[in-house]
């Protein structure tokens, strides 16, 4: 079949393409490919940093210290460089059940380290076992009352935010954060001050218990909340007042979103 000479720009798939059309696409296709690459560059380069969290899967590390489980399992390392290490399971689950039998004892346990600035978390693995160490008495972990506070920020799940997911905050991550909290991962309130410095506070309920499940629907949106701040080991907690959590529709989520960095 031959194409009518008058139809120089009419394309039919099973016929030879008119010369004008072939020439057009020899220019258009490379231009479109370049445009796709340029668009990709534009979109990708607009992504912000998700902070300096690290989920180190290169090897297990051992943590030795005094274990407390309320409101969340934490191993307190004492000595010259005291540090509190939050324990979580390997999925979106807290480590409360695994740790509770060893509460208020000196233990050692291994897992993968998750670190972000001053924060450290240990992700247990199926082979993780708690070894009770020689009893050295209770650790000096008295809670220091820091008074009433009212803060504005974003409630996030600590595991993802500290380094497992980057970014581990914001709306896109919200369903994951909610699932993590429902699994018992400790909730963290991330706030920033007028100078743009960011701080994280572990949240617990008025009775000093886990607030994970009750805050699962209030993650990843701007909120204000009030309560009493207290220091335990080297971590700050807020014993938030029931009913004080208020979602803020007027505040841009982006200002508390993925660009947050704790350190």
């Amino acid at each position: 079949m031959s194409q009518d000479n008058e139809n120089t720009e009419f394309f039919v798939g099973y016929l030879q393409a008119p010369a004008g059309i072939s020439k057009f696409y020899k220019i258009v296709v490379p231009v479109l490919l370049l445009f796709a690459m340029g668009f990709s560059f534009w979109v990708s380069s607009a992504q912000k940093s998700a902070g300096q969290g690290v989920w180190d899967l290169s090897g297990e590390v051992e943590v030795r210290g005094y274990l407390t489980v309320d409101p969340y399992p934490v191993i307190h390392i004492t000595g010259e460089q005291p540090r509190s290490v939050i324990l979580v399971e390997q999925t979106k689950m807290g480590a409360g059940e695994s740790a509770r039998p060893y509460a208020n004892q000196w233990v050692s346990v291994s897992g993968f380290a998750i670190t972000r600035g001053d924060w450290t978390m240990l992700q247990l693995v199926p082979s993780s076992t708690f070894t009770v160490l020689e009893d050295a008495g209770a650790a000096p972990l008295a809670a220091i009352d820091m008074g009433e506070v009212e803060l504005t920020g974003e409630i996030i799940d600590s595991k993802c935010f500290l380094g497992v997911m980057k970014p581990g905050a914001g709306k896109a991550h919200r369903a994951c954060a909610s699932m993590c909290l429902r699994g018992g991962i400790p909730p963290l309130l991330v706030v920033k001050n007028a100078q743009g410095e960011k701080y994280g506070f572990m949240l617990m309920n008025e009775n000093g218990g886990s607030a994970s499940i009750e805050l699962a629907n209030q993650v990843a949106v701007p909120v204000t909340l009030s309560g009493r701040m207290e220091q335990r080991g080297d971590m700050m907690y807020i014993r938030y007042s029931e009913g004080s959590v208020e979602k803020l529709s007027s505040t841009s989520l982006a200002s508390y979103g993925e660009s947050l960095a704790y350190n």
């Binding site: 994951c176 979602k247 529709s249």
Partner: peptide
């Protein structure tokens, strides 16, 4: 990535993402 490895079926979790119609920031997408 976001809906699995948790306490809920991943597909069910798509429809039970937290949210309300109070503001755009709060509506599940």
């Amino acid at each position: 990535w976001y809906h699995s490895f948790g306490v809920q079926n991943p597909v069910v979790a798509i429809f039970s993402s937290p949210g309300s119609f109070d503001s755009a920031a709060d509506i599940a997408f």
